[in-house]
Structure formats: C-alpha cells, structure tokens
Design a protein around this nucleic acid. Sequence first.
DNA 1: GTGCATTCGATATTAAAATATCGAAATACT
DNA 2: AGTATTTCGATATTTTAATATCGAATGCAC
Lengths: 229, 229
Amino acid sequence: MISIPVLTLKRLPQYLELLYGFEQEGQDTISATRLAELTGVHMTQVRKDISLTGVVGTPKVGHKIKDLIESIESCLNWKDLSSAFLVGVGRLGSSLLGYSELKRKGLNIVAGFDSDPSLAGTLVDGVIVHSMDKFANLCQRMKVHIGILTVPADQAQSTAELMVASGILAIWNFTPTLLQVDENIIVEDVDMSASLAVLSRRLSEKYDHDSKQISKIDNYKNKTDQEKQ
Amino acid sequence: MISIPVLTLKRLPQYLELLYGFEQEGQDTISATRLAELTGVHMTQVRKDISLTGVVGTPKVGHKIKDLIESIESCLNWKDLSSAFLVGVGRLGSSLLGYSELKRKGLNIVAGFDSDPSLAGTLVDGVIVHSMDKFANLCQRMKVHIGILTVPADQAQSTAELMVASGILAIWNFTPTLLQVDENIIVEDVDMSASLAVLSRRLSEKYDHDSKQISKIDNYKNKTDQEKQ
DNA sequence: GTGCATTCGATATTAAAATATCGAAATACT
DNA sequence: AGTATTTCGATATTTTAATATCGAATGCAC
C-alpha cells in the first residue's frame, strides 16, 4: 500500500466536506478546478491529491462526485468502522462521544473510561463508561486498537503507557503532552496549541502591534473599511 | 515583522511544553540537541526554529530555559492577553471555556454566545453567556477581534459571516466547515478530520488490511511481540 | 593554561512539496 | 463534421522545507 503524503491526507477531508454538500444539492460531477477555487488549494495540487486516491476523471467533465467520495473514503479507510476506546470522559471527551460524525469517518467509540469512579457504569450519549481498571482486559478481549486520549495533561503520559501495554496500536491524542511511546505506535496529535500559535502569530504579523494592540488594529480596520468604500 | 513558517509555528508550542516541564524540575539550561531527542525533530531544525524566535544560545551550554520560554512566548504573542468571543456553548465550546490553559497562551475568552435562549445570562466556568443578537454590538463596543467557532456544522458559515460583519479579524474554527470569508480574515482550523484522516490512513498503511482487519492486526501484533522476545 | 568534547549558528546539500507547462481526451458550438 | 474550449493527467520547474556539513565559541578535564 503506497504511502500518501501527510499534507495530502489532511486535504482529503476538506474535499470530502465539499463533496458531501454537492451530493446533497443533487450535483453529479465536479472539476478539480472548482475544488481548487473553493479550497484555495492550487488546482494541480488538487489533481495530484485526487490521483493519489486512485480515481480517474474524464476530460472536460471532471469527476463523478459519487466516485470521488467513494475513492477518498476508502483511501482513508473510512468505509468500514474501526472500534476505539476513549479515556477521559470530561467535557472534551464526552463531546467526542456525542459527535456522531465520527461514525461517518470510520471511527466507532465502543466504550469510555474514566478515573472518576462515580462515572463507572453510566451511559454518555449511549456509550458505556467503565472504570480504568477494566481497560487492559476489555482492550484485549474486544481487540480494540485505537485509543482516544482526552485526559488532563498530567495523566496523559501514564494513560498512553497503559494503552500501549493493553494492545492499542494508534493513539488519537487530544492532550498537549508530547507522548513518549514505542516508535511503532502511531500517535496523532490534535494540536490545539499549534493551531493557536499560528493564529496568534499571523494576527501579530498582520497588524504588527508593539504596545497598543487594540487601537492599532482598530485604526487598521477603519482604514481598510474606508478603502473599500 | 518577519513571517515565520507555519511548520515552525506548529513546533514552537511543543518545545514550550517541554520547557515548562524542565523549568518546574528546576533545570536551568537546555540544548537544542536534547530538545531534538525529545520531540523527534531534527536537531538542525530545532536550531533553526529557535533562531527564528530571535534568541541566542551559548556553545557547549545550550539555551537558558527562562530566555527560551520568554522568546517563544513573545514570538507567539502569548505574553499579553487577547480578548476573544466564543460562539456555540455546547460541550466542545464549554470545554474550551473551562480550559484555563488558554490564558497562558494569550487567549482570554471574555464571553460566550449561543442561539439557545435558555443559556443567555448564565455563567459557564465563570464566563457569561449571551444570546446571539448581542454579538455584533458587544464585539464593537469591547473591540474584540478573535472569534472562536464551536457551533454545529450547519451554522458555521452563517456564524462566521456574522463574526466578520461584527469586526472579528481572526476566526479559530473548530467546525469541519471550510469557511468562505473575506481573504484578509485569518481563519485557523482545528481540523479533527484532518488528524483522523492521517491516523486512519497510517494505520491502514502499516497493517495493510484488505478485508479481515482485526485478525490481520492481531497476527501482526503477535508476530512483532514474538520478535521482541 | 592546553587540549578535548560539546554545542551553537551559518552555509550547503538534499529531499519534498507546490506550482507551472503541455499534450491528449471529451464535450459543446458552429 | 470540424473547430474551439475545457479539463484531465503526466512531466518539468520552481520553491520551500528538512537534513547534513563545518567553523567558531565555550566550558571542562587534565
């Protein structure tokens, strides 16, 4: 199985999102050119990305939306459900348990786990919550290989170690902690801090505020508003 | 102000996370070499990243941890607080309201907004929640320029438009929707789908399952376990 | 103090990603 | 039917990011 570049993988769900919309609107085909316009990705890049999923289009027409969806979904292995355990049923954790879109993206959270014993046995959005000491056993018995990590930062590393010891092969890490695990464990960070870093810096770069941020930004805003008129 | 590459910006919070840890342990200095070991980033890359923040180290010793933290934080503009409004006080939204770490990352959520009128006037983690119709007015009066978008997907685009019309300059977007807004509005996506896409694909690539996923993975697991012994 | 090991930081090389170019195929228009 | 236009998809170029190399500076051991 060929290795698809990370950056391509990260763009594929963007295309999918648009394609679902077009499908609902009853559209039948879409061109890479149009996808490029809507995503801001260069059109040759869109073509490359699409060709990596293995689908072919027809000149002058574009791609059949159904085929494209099918191709991207199967490329991402979103067509059949993988079971996952979620550890840390706080607000972030439980918002994931209630996020039904995950099932459309190949992820089936079959149980939650939390160190708070009062949660044990309860249902959160229809998902059973167990105490932590059940994790290893259930993980092996149910052959679950994906772990979702939504615990507080100070428990992240130890929980990750428990996961790996229990047979988890891939960790979807929502904590800011840099996990130190065996190198053939797949760790994928949902890195809020990274995203915030980009936002903060871009804002600084654009409005170049040294001390009186707000007023400078407001001046800028007024100026550009005037220019528009 | 120089433009720092996105990929560097995304690595900086990782370094910070480690540095906070070292600081607490009472360490005084750290080498780029050591940071490279811990993050998996190449050591010359770490040096480049660090030099972009404008700090200099001393040969044989490394960098003073205090200086490095200071330098990265000010580079990301995390040293002084920026006010932000959050729209969509669901579980994801309220988990952000309760996430005190954001203040350490320069972000001060001063109010929440929700279309559910029963939430108006309530406090969530000490943050006041308003009804949506107050947004534009408060945004202008309080000169808030950062909007956090945690609404359901079908309200994402319209909410973003309201934000922009109200004077928001940067949107931190937690929805899977590709926002279509004026090009000089900064949009930064926290892209869960992108991250899941990478995880799913990497898992597929590694265990190359065509039909009987689980058993194949388990076979692989057993095999590698045996190899280790 | 002198030599040695370590680390910085600048420059050079390599690798990868993004963009541009171009021919071929398919449809629509004349 | 023939031509023009759009779009695909392959190849080539450019740009950017990652890695390697190397000299200089610093501290430590002797």
